[in-house]
Every structure is written in C-alpha cells, then in structure tokens.
Design a protein around this nucleic acid. Structure first.
Lengths: 216, 216
DNA sequence: TCAATAGTGTCTATAAGACACTATGCC
DNA sequence: GGCATAGTGTCTTATAGACACTATTGA
C-alpha cells in the first residue's frame, strides 16, 4: 500500500476577460521548480474530508477562502507520478482576481507553461466543465466581486463562454433565476452615461449554484 | 500515511419498474456479514486507474462488464471507517437485470437493509444523480437490453423518473437525440395489438451518454 | 369487426432570442 | 442637446407538451 493520495485545486479567475489559473512553483521533488497546481497530502488530523484538505491548501498557498469549491473528480494511475501509483482528488474554485494573495501567479488557461504530472490535462478538463456549467447556471457570479452590476456580470459570462449574449435577455433570465438582490440606492458609474444598479448574491445562494432548466 | 483508499460501485438495475441496487454480504471485518456495496482496494499491479478497479470489482463480484460506468465522486473522512481516515471513489453503473451473475442480491433503493460505512448515503446520492441525469439524457437506455422497443424504453424512463411521460412526444425527442437505430424487420409482439419496432443503440453511443439541451 | 397498443400528425402554450424603444447620467 | 450605456417592452421564432387520429396485430 504505497498508493499516493493527494488533493489538487484548480483556482480560476478572470483577468482582462480571460480565464486564468493560479499556479505555484514546486518547492520539492519531483518536478521541483516547475509551475504546478496547488495541492498536497490530506492531513488526517486536520482534514474532515478531502474537500477540507483542498480548502486548507487554497488558504495556505493562495490566501483564499473561496465561497465556491467543488469536487471535479479523480485522476489516478501508475504513470502520472514518478514515485508510484497515485490518485488525486481535483477540486475547483472560482474567485475574483483581487482576493488572491501576493504569492499566486496567474496564467491564462490558453497559454500555460510546462506542467508536471497530468496537471495540463486536469486544467483542461476543469475549464471545459466550468464553461459547460456556465451555460446553464450561476457559476460565473463567483468570478465577480461581492457587489457588481448586471452589465459587469454580463461581460463575465461572455468572457467565460467566449460568445456574445444578448444583454436584455440576459437580464431577464438572471431575474428569473432569482439569486440576485438590488443594493438599494447603490449604483456604479463607468462613463458619461446612466449609472448601473449594483447587485449582490442573495445570502442563501452565497456558496451555492443556481441552475436553469434551459440555456443561460 | 495510513489512509485507506478504496473504490465502491453502485450497480443499479430495474426490477418491476423499481430501481434496485446490487449488494453483497461482507466476508471480512469490519461489518462482516452486513450487506454492502461491492468495493475494494485498488490493485496497483492490475488497475490502470481507479475506474479500472471499479470495473474489476464489478466483474469479480457481479460478473458484469458494464458498458456504462461513471465516476460519481469521493466520500472521505476520519469517521466513516472504524479503521481510520478513509477515502472511497464511488462509481455507478446501469445494467439490465438479467446480465448479472447468480451471486448478486438486489434491493429496492427505497427499502435498503442496514448498511455499513456511509453506504446508505452513497446510494442515496447516486440515485438522486441518476434521476437528475435521466431527465435530460439517454442514461436510462443502459437499463434496457440490447434490443428494445420505444414503449419499453418509455416505461423505463417513467420508472426511473417516477412521473408520466407523453409517449408520442417521448418518441419524437428520442428521434431528435439520434442515438437509436431501427433493427430492420425486427418487431416485438406483446399482446393482441400492433407489434412494436425493435431498436438498438447506435454503435458510437454504446458506452456514451447523449444529452439534450432541454428536458427529456 | 373489436379491442388494444404502436405510431403519426397537428394544434397550443411557453420560453428563448432579436430588437426597438425609453431612461439617465456626463459633457 | 448629444452621446453613451442602463434598462424596459414587444414581437418573432423555436421548442415542449397535449391530444386527436391512423395503423396493425390477435381474437
């Protein structure tokens, strides 16, 4: 029983309308010095379950307490780690860029450096999942700040999905979802035009995902 | 590093329009003698990844080579196994009842015996997932034989979803999905009425899932 | 010919999307 | 007032679902 059990976290954010992933330089062998996903062993004393280990890793390495952390799945096999048969439980989190600590380095998911293990495959899989989920759920709101305007959120969706969305219809569907609430009196001004109403996620949806029957 | 790493399989089938799960009497401690999900350790020599271990377990215990085997997720923590901190990767499979070996015992998912570990929670979670997926995908076809009629498949969907579906519309949507092909000339007669055309899944969808945008 | 279920065609209700229009800020 | 973006209303089109109708078998 020398099986290696780890967790890895794919921490995603949006920088200039492009999805980025947080990577860290590995301090130890194997692959010392390469950029890699934050991850590590489960600590039996501290971690209540694998998800707690992922949350701990994010906190320790990226100074992030993500409100949205979900299991993606496992990657395992004899070849992915030179030390032996290994299994990693992959989690993913979405956060606004500015909440991350100094230590993180962000890379656009479309232009990654050389990565150890199967981290490139892991990131690609997670990004695909996130794009799919974005199309029929509220997932992308976790890329926004606590307060945001509808046009801002609209831009986030367009960036994640990489396709244009009709703004008036987008508005209506968000309204149908019922996960946002107006912040009374609060608006944001971005040009010499009408200021936009600020919204926030309703408390009961803070760490949740709302799903639509149909498309987004 | 005494972490216990296992896989467990939730093998589902339909008996008399009711979802059943395959359970086995545990031969070893802990919980020897209790009904439990088929599962076990990963064998580093044989298993290419965790999914292979699940497939091997199903073959060994249930004599089933399921065409559809998917990872559900992990269950882990210090309390679920009396031997220590443990993590299990849960897989689920759907098969027609008659392909299973003699050794399996089927229980309706709504009336399970006392189960060890967190197997009751695991089964409940998987059943919920399967019901959800059934509503917008071709998942339930894997509960049918290789050859089946549309009315038969219709009954399977109604059983899994536990709600009536309009048969003519069901037919049209299946047609839209495009995963079935007629078996020319083959029909099945079930009463003194018009016989029904037999269908099978197109080869390219044999171990795949087709998903509809909207509901099923 | 009747009963029963297979299978087709059509109508209606609803939801998605396109787009014109109004609102409100700064200059 | 002009311009730019926020936000609303309405029309069109696609899809889902209800349901009437035809088809084909055994008795």
């Amino acid at each position: 029983m020398t099986t290696i059990l780890t967790v890895d976290a794919v921490l995603l954010t949006l920088v200039e309308d492009e999805l980025h992933v947080a990577l860290f330089k590995r301090q130890n062998a194997p692959f010392k010095g390469l950029w890699a996903l934050p991850g590590g062993y489960v600590h039996e004393r501290e971690d209540d379950h694998a998800g707690s280990a992922a949350a701990r890793v994010l906190k320790e390495k990226a100074a992030v307490a993500s409100p949205y952390l979900e299991e993606y799945g496992t990657f395992s096999g004899p070849g992915r780690d030179p030390r032996g048969w290994s299994l990693t439980v992959v989690y993913y989190a979405l956060v606004p860029a500015h909440v991350m600590g100094e230590a993180v380095t962000l890379f656009p998911v479309a232009r990654l450096p050389a990565l150890p293990f199967d981290h490139a495959e892991i990131i690609a899989s997670v990004v695909t999942r996130v794009r799919n989920k974005a199309a029929y759920s509220s997932l992308p709101v976790f890329l926004c700040d606590e307060q945001f305007t509808i046009p801002e959120l609209h831009a986030v969706y367009e960036a994640v999905l990489a396709e244009p969305l009709n703004l008036p219809n987008f508005r209506r569907k968000l309204d149908d979802l019922g996960i946002l609430e107006e912040i009374p009196g609060a608006t944001r001004l971005t040009g010499r035009n009408r200021p936009a109403q600020l919204y926030r996620i309703k408390k009961q949806f803070r760490s949740l995902l709302s799903v639509r029957d149909r498309g987004l």
